[in-house]
């Protein structure tokens, strides 16, 4: 009670209280040597990483740059999608049908190109087989959120065949980093999708 009375007698404002707290904070003794320098170093590091993150924003893309997930998948070919991106949180085929694609500008003639393949909606570990020019490259490839890479010759014909459907159909996305295009597709067990990979003109 006495303490409260004493406090009320003091002509201190809220600002004074705050500033005194602030000065206390500033005057806190150092716990380790060079603590203030460590703090400053960390502050500059944090500022630098903020700057780098802003700059990196110019290089990173996402499917959302092209519209909603439904729109992007319905358009079938996307140039903004990053490999491994999940467009849906549930297992559905986004109302698309199995289709064959012609992949143009996939690399230099006679060279090699990378093909990335992943599950673009709920990760349910469906299985596919990948054949290049009729020769099996992967007899069993479990589709997951983490894209798998397959090296393919240019030109060639890549076939993706459905092996195991855990439920809701086998939906997957294929990306060719060389032409920066992602192709959304679905396949059923035993059926195949073909990608005709063509070189740069």
């Amino acid at each position: 009670m006495k303490k409260v009375k004493k406090q009320s007698n003091q002509p201190s404002t809220e600002f004074d209280q705050l500033s005194s707290e602030y000065s206390q904070d500033q005057a806190a003794p150092e716990i380790v040597p060079h603590q203030s320098k460590i703090r400053r170093s960390l502050g500059w590091s944090a500022l630098t990483i903020v700057g780098i993150a802003i700059l990196s924003g110019f290089f990173t893309t996402s499917y959302s740059d092209e519209g909603t997930a439904e729109e992007v998948v319905a358009n079938r070919i996307s140039t903004a999608t990053e490999a491994g991106e999940n467009l849906f949180t549930e297992e559905n085929n986004a109302n698309i049908e199995a289709r064959d694609f012609e992949v143009t500008n996939a690399g230099s003639d006679g060279g090699e190109a990378r093909m990335l393949i992943w599950d673009f909606n709920l990760e349910d570990f469906d299985e596919v087989a990948v054949l290049v020019d009729g020769v099996p490259v992967k007899e069993k490839l479990i589709l997951s959120e983490n894209a798998a890479a397959i090296s393919i010759p240019v030109p060639s014909t890549v076939t993706v065949r459905g092996v195991k459907d855990v439920g809701g159909g086998i939906s997957y996305a294929v990306k060719f980093p060389n032409n920066k295009s992602t192709y959304f597709n679905v396949v059923t067990v035993g059926q195949s999708n073909t990608y005709t990979v063509l070189p740069r003109p």
């Binding site: 490999a83 491994g84 890479a149």
Partner: peptide, 10 residues
């Protein structure tokens, strides 16, 4: 593996 992976991100 030559595949992209998401880290913590910048």
């Amino acid at each position: 593996l030559e595949t992209p992976r998401a880290g913590l991100t910048l």
